[in-house]
């Protein structure tokens, strides 16, 4: 554990809490892609199956359970509790275009050809692209509420901090997880355009982020 990794995990936690609290308080999930949230729940589910096979640390176990619970709570709020507010007309990204290549890749490129390892690899690749339905939705509607952009900012910050964590681990413990690093870098690139808009628009006090 290093400071980048801890800060990354905290950013990830903050992002998910921001989204959950936003939906709960406003009693609305307008502007939120339910598809991205289902994909994230699938990411956590397939990655954290090792909860049943290995124990790494109390921190690791607690964080995994919290992430799982919060991602399922988010999906529940969007599709059950506040489904009337769900903007399905703008949440039209074709998820199968992500799932098919990701499933194929996880069978081709993995550390061991075992069910748990293939599912872990699937979760890593899927996380890299899971935000695409959300970014697609913002592009389609041309705007995002500032609280939604704060969510995306913390999610992107988490990714950037994980890259710093990998650089640190590479130099201090010769740790290099090629699958996680390559897909992590790809994932971070998706946020760059958004980061630019966030800094130039949202941080200048706009209530909404309107796309140029």
């Amino acid at each position: 554990m290093n400071v980048f990794r801890l800060a990354g995990d905290v950013s990830h936690l903050v992002a998910i809490i921001i989204l959950l609290v936003k939906i709960w308080r406003s009693k609305s999930c307008a502007g939120i892609s339910g598809k991205s949230q289902v994909l994230f729940a699938l990411v956590f589910t397939t990655r954290y199956l090792d909860l049943f096979t290995v124990f790494i640390s109390a921190y690791n176990t607690i964080m995994k359970v919290v992430f799982l619970a919060m991602s399922y709570a988010t999906v529940y709020l969007i599709y059950m509790r506040f489904r009337n507010m769900y903007d399905s007309e703008n949440d039209t990204f074709r998820v199968e275009f992500l799932l098919v290549p990701v499933i194929g890749l996880s069978f081709l490129e993995n550390y061991a050809f075992t069910p748990l390892e293939i599912l872990w690899t699937f979760s890593i690749f899927l996380e890299a692209v899971a935000i695409m339905p959300q970014l697609f939705m913002i592009t389609k509607t041309g705007e995002a509420e500032s609280i939604t952009t704060h969510y995306l900012f913390f999610l992107g910050l988490y990714r950037a901090l994980y890259i710093a964590n990998w650089v640190w681990r590479y130099h201090t413990e010769e740790f290099f997880d090629q699958i996680a690093v390559v897909s992590g870098v790809v994932q971070t690139i998706f946020y760059c355009d958004f980061f630019y808009l966030y800094v130039t628009r949202v941080l200048r006090g706009k209530a909404k982020m309107i796309l140029p």
């Binding site: 990830h12 090792d50 740790f175 996680a180």
Partner: peptide, 10 residues
Amino acid sequence: HALKMPHDEL
């Protein structure tokens, strides 16, 4: 630089 298993990151 072999990967250390199990996966210890979130």
